[in-house]
Amino acid sequence: MTEEEIEKRTLELLAEVCDDEVVYEERDIDLFEAGLLDSMAAIEVLVGIEEAFGVEIAPTEVEREEMNSVNKIIHQIVVRALA
């Protein structure tokens, strides 16, 4: 799996969970502040990540600041998937 693939599938996942295509454009906004994600949706994202990439990230493993934008999420997955 390459970084591009990870990026593509992550965007699909996020668009579905956030129910908003804006994630494709705004890669660095805080998704929680923007109201696109809330705590429960975040769980769905983590589960979706596990399903799509086989990467397990526990909800208490990572600080919110480290996973609150599209690019940061992609980064966390890449770091674990390609490690």
Binding site: S39, L46, P59, E61, E63, R64, E65, M67, N68
Partner: peptide, 8 residues
């Protein structure tokens, strides 16, 4: 995602 720390 964890909770944001209060007293960062």
């Amino acid at each position: 995602m964890g909770k944001a720390k209060l007293c960062s």
